[in-house]
Amino acid sequence: MADAADTARTPVSPSAIAAGRWVLDPAGSTVRVRHKTFWGLATVSGEFTAVSGEGEVAADGSARGTLTIDAASLDTRNTQRDAHLRGADFLDTDQHPEIVVAISGAVPGEGAAVTVDGELTVLGRTRPLSFTARLTEATADAATLTADVDIDRTGFGMTWNRLGMMRGAAAMTVTTRFTRR
């Protein structure tokens, strides 16, 4: 019998996911963000604590769906910084309460890889989004995907950068756990 460490190393095949409708399990899903600041000397990390979503897997194993993030749920464990990030300089959550990832196609690749294409909407601006996710769990009733995605915040109009302190893209690690509806 394989132990937990062996199971974690064994690739999970996307073909193990049954066709049908799936719903996001918020308790098993996380959206974390990291961004270098202070001229690359420090990293600000946070997590969006409220996410929802759903998807549909076709008979051929391809999938589509939506992930909705409550922009005001960003928590960096610093109240003053969180208020600034939720304000007009960054997420402007009063005017744009949601960040939406609309997946138009998720296609199984080799091993546990899933090629994902869609659109990301932040601050009312929609941009194409493509990345590779890893299927880390696949059972008859649950599937978990994890992806690391770099997002250029300036492409969405977030250009605040006092004294040039913030450089480069924000790094996001997204883990989504879906359960069979």
Results as ranks from 00 to 15, higher is better:
residue 2 A to P: 12
residue 111 G to F: 00
residue 91 L to N: 02
residue 35 H to P: 10
residue 146 T to L: 05
residue 25 D to C: 10
residue 20 G to N: 07
residue 118 G to D: 01
residue 180 R to T: 01
residue 3 D to R: 00
residue 43 T to W: 10
residue 32 R to Q: 07
residue 121 T to S: 12
residue 137 E to D: 12
residue 63 A to K: 01
residue 17 I to T: 04
residue 29 S to N: 12
residue 153 R to I: 06
residue 103 I to Y: 14
residue 61 G to H: 00
residue 10 T to D: 04
residue 7 T to P: 09
residue 46 G to M: 13
residue 36 K to A: 06
residue 46 G to L: 06
residue 93 T to V: 10
residue 159 T to E: 13
residue 165 M to L: 07
residue 181 R to S: 15
residue 80 Q to G: 14
residue 43 T to A: 08
residue 88 A to Y: 11
residue 150 D to Y: 13
residue 165 M to D: 12
residue 115 T to G: 06
residue 169 A to I: 04
residue 90 F to L: 09
residue 117 D to M: 08
residue 7 T to D: 13
residue 56 E to A: 11
residue 151 I to D: 06
residue 150 D to G: 05
residue 90 F to G: 01
residue 139 T to F: 14
residue 110 E to W: 06
residue 36 K to D: 11
residue 85 L to N: 05
residue 132 T to L: 09
residue 135 L to S: 05
residue 106 A to Q: 14
residue 10 T to R: 10
residue 4 A to C: 14
residue 154 T to P: 06
residue 104 S to C: 06
residue 154 T to R: 14
residue 146 T to V: 15
residue 52 S to C: 03
residue 59 A to K: 04
residue 136 T to M: 09
residue 144 T to F: 04
residue 133 A to S: 02
residue 71 A to W: 00
residue 127 R to C: 09
residue 68 T to S: 09
residue 17 I to E: 02
residue 151 I to N: 03
residue 66 T to F: 06
residue 37 T to N: 04
residue 36 K to V: 15
residue 9 R to C: 04
residue 12 V to M: 05
residue 174 V to P: 01
residue 176 T to N: 04
residue 1 M to S: 15
residue 91 L to Y: 02
residue 100 V to N: 05
residue 36 K to N: 11
residue 68 T to I: 00
residue 92 D to E: 10
residue 44 V to Q: 09
residue 101 V to M: 06
residue 105 G to N: 10
residue 6 D to A: 15
residue 87 G to D: 14
residue 128 P to V: 00
residue 176 T to M: 09
residue 100 V to K: 04
residue 75 D to A: 08
residue 119 E to F: 04
residue 29 S to T: 15
residue 42 A to K: 08
residue 98 E to Y: 00
